[in-house]
Amino acid sequence: MFDIGWSELAVIAVVALIVIGPRDLPRVLYTAGKMAGKARAMLREVQQSIEDIGREAELEDMRKKIESVRDVDLHKQIRNSIDPKGEIEAAFDTDVERRPAAAPADTQTSASAVEPPEPAEAPQSDDPPPVRP
């Protein structure tokens, strides 16, 4: 962990035994172990918090992308990519009122070509229809 070899650990143990004494050494080692455990737990918690912040940032970016895609009018996008000037739609448009105005002579011929002929009226008679047995 700290690149400390066995010989260096032995020197530290001998110095600690001399400075602290054999009676207090187990209590000091126990306290040092508890402090090291708490430090590891705090480090783990900080690392987890940093990872959570990163995940939230990624989720926020994904949410923004999804919302931007949701706002797209797909029908309009397809229509604009196929017929950007609206010429095809105008050619197939049967509603004369929505059509752009054309020259007066041209309007009469195109209107008669677009409108269906009126059905011929059947002759009306006063006789009732025949009854079939």
Rank of each mutant, 00 (worst) to 15 (best):
M1E: 02
F2I: 01
S7Q: 07
S7N: 07
A10L: 10
I12F: 00
V14F: 06
V14Y: 04
I20T: 10
G21T: 04
G21A: 00
R23G: 04
R23K: 13
P26E: 01
V28E: 03
Y30G: 02
Y30K: 05
T31M: 02
A32M: 04
G33S: 15
M35V: 13
M35E: 09
G37H: 07
A39V: 12
R40G: 13
R40H: 15
R40W: 15
M42H: 14
M42Q: 15
L43A: 15
R44L: 15
E45G: 12
V46F: 15
V46N: 14
V46C: 13
Q48S: 08
S49N: 12
S49D: 14
S49M: 10
S49Y: 04
E51V: 06
I53P: 03
A57V: 03
A57N: 04
E58M: 10
L59H: 09
L59S: 12
L59Q: 14
E60N: 08
E60D: 11
I66D: 11
I66F: 14
R70D: 15
D71E: 14
V72R: 10
V72Q: 10
D73R: 13
D73V: 05
K76S: 14
Q77L: 14
I78D: 05
I78M: 09
N80F: 13
S81V: 11
S81I: 12
P84H: 08
I88P: 06
A91K: 09
F92W: 11
F92S: 11
T94H: 11
T94L: 12
D95L: 08
V96Y: 00
E97F: 06
R98H: 13
R99I: 03
P100V: 04
A103S: 03
A103V: 03
A105M: 00
A105F: 02
Q108K: 06
Q108W: 07
T109C: 00
S110H: 04
S110G: 04
A113S: 01
E115R: 05
E115K: 04
E118N: 13
E118M: 12
P119M: 02
A120M: 08
P123T: 04
P123I: 07
P129A: 11
P130F: 10
P130M: 09
